[in-house]
Design a binder for these strands. Structure first.
Lengths: 298, 298
DNA sequence: GCTAGTTACTAACTCGAATTAGTGCTACCG
DNA sequence: CGGTAGCACTAATTCGAGTTAGTAACTAGC
């Protein structure tokens, strides 16, 4: 068995004429010897590892993320690629790209700018139809249809720059759909990790701007912080203050009152992201990318 | 500049006599040419990528995980290694090990058995002093000291085999510390994703075994499911039923009543895991690996 | 027996870095 | 002038897979 012949068989090199019997012999030998191609050597030749790196921003988590990852994986396995996920708290992005040499890189709105690395794709999620802007539309539109005009947007009171960037991006989307939805005002409501502080913040906001009748939160956790503060202040939800979350997390349905929230079709987003990263054509969304799950808090 | 000389300088090969001026010239040239050593080629020579793969079981999440990852990373950067984390829902473990060829592999109690891969370390977390057994001791011991004798352990009603394995492991730990703590009985309380089902399960358990006065949950989420069910059933917490969580997650302090929980020193565990994986000696714990955060639910 | 066609072979080389053994050159000392 | 450090060089190899060009061995047809 020459290395060349073996290579032709195992990699099914097109245009190579080999007897079927020979192919069988090679395959049998490979099996018997438990031949496992050395991936690093392959990667060296190919120029990159059979890996796509997904960089998650600091905010996303839980339910949505799971679906997104799932969707990307579905798409990548068809190409024999493995998905690697980097969370905000893990190794620095550069270090990670350097260490694994991925075939492609997918970043949700991130700090990462510039870069000569091949196959790098940035998803800016600003899409009017399928990005965060659309989700803002879904969330605020629902409140608008219920008659709310003054709405507060609950955000995390973070000082982290990259987290802040995402928050600002989402506030911009909210502002962008404001007039279209006939909303009078959209105010920011920055919440912390402390229930006491949050109570004070909510109380201050409502006394400053009593016209506010609803809170749209950037995630379910923030919505629940709001509900907790409202409960502490003796505010009736949803009669005096409605609240809607984002992401349809598990605790939301458990809360009392059960949290109304926006669910997004994360799996479909994952598919899209993967196809984009691989340079394959992305199709249309089969159904709306986000929808409201109505429960008791609105 | 010969390749050999350059290699000696850049890798600081010990035992090589070189003039400082030459070293400087090499370094300057490397900088000017933006020399970036190709990691895959390096990995090929070294036999593995400069990466340690951490495999998280299906249960862990949130707060604890963050600390653990942080701790491992602290330790690994000193060796120039990058930490990669695999969650339960991502690519299969084999595929991932195959794709990145990590220097070492760290698995929390997992399905993964056998394996010729070098540097693979399984952490069985059964340690009496510093593992899950110790945490069970911390959690149940606290309830025992409050006078509880019949305790229910809230578990996720999962059918997933690997998740089930971890649950069983933790139930075993609970059973193991039972007699030592003077507890009469430790019963399993399997909770689902449905508040209605949970309410029925809790009601059934308490009518079958009215002696039960406390619930110890395997994580905070399960503790909150229990609290939700208790609230629905009109059970007074903590007077008629106490509840303690595990993991000190963010929502726990937000809940009403605020959740008593067990916090574990995840960063220290991360350090240990990394040192273990690298074959370095692991020291003693400076302080208890877990402690109770007392709030209103007990 | 010659030619053409089929099939599998050998040998050399790529990817990029690291490492070894051996060599050449300079400078200094006795 | 010979000997010996001190220093940097050349050339060859390794890691494992994959690829290419050229060739050898065999069979079939005329």
């Amino acid at each position: 068995m020459s290395p060349a012949t073996v290579s032709f068989v195992l990699n099914e090199t097109p245009g190579q004429v080999l007897r079927e019997e020979t192919r069988d012999r090679v395959r049998a030998a490979a099996k018997q010897l438990h031949y496992q191609p050395h991936r690093i050597a392959r990667a060296l030749r190919a120029g990159s590892s059979p890996v796509v790196l997904l960089d998650i921003g600091p905010i996303w988590g839980g339910h949505i993320l799971d679906g997104f990852v799932q969707g990307m994986r579905d798409e990548l396995v068809t190409e024999g690629l493995t998905l690697l996920v980097r969370r905000g708290d893990e190794a620095p992005l550069d270090e990670m790209i350097d260490a694994v040499a991925p075939r492609a890189f997918v970043g949700l709105p991130s700090e990462y700018t510039g870069g000569s690395h091949s196959g790098r794709v940035e998803i800016e999620e600003g899409g009017r139809l399928d990005g965060l802007a659309a989700h803002a539309h879904t969330q605020l539109g629902f409140l608008a249809r219920l008659g709310h005009r003054h709405i507060a947007v609950a955000t995390p009171a973070t000082s982290d720059a990259s987290a802040r960037r995402i928050v600002d991006l989402r506030l911009q989307h909210a502002a962008a759909v404001r007039s279209e939805l006939g909303l009078t005002q959209v105010t920011e409501l920055p919440l912390t990790e402390s229930p006491e502080d949050d109570r004070a913040t909510v109380a201050a906001l409502l006394s400053d701007t009593p016209e506010i009748t609803a809170v749209a939160a950037l995630d379910d956790m923030l919505a629940m912080r709001t509900l907790r503060a409202a409960d502490d202040l003796g505010i009736d939800v949803p009669a005096d203050l409605a609240a809607i979350g984002f992401g349809n997390s598990a605790v939301g349905s458990l809360w009392k009152p059960a949290l109304t929230t926006v669910e997004i079709d994360a799996v479909a987003f994952g598919h899209r992201a993967a196809r984009l990263a691989l340079g394959k054509p992305v199709g249309e969304f089969a159904r709306p990318a986000s929808r409201v799950i109505v429960r008791e808090s609105t």
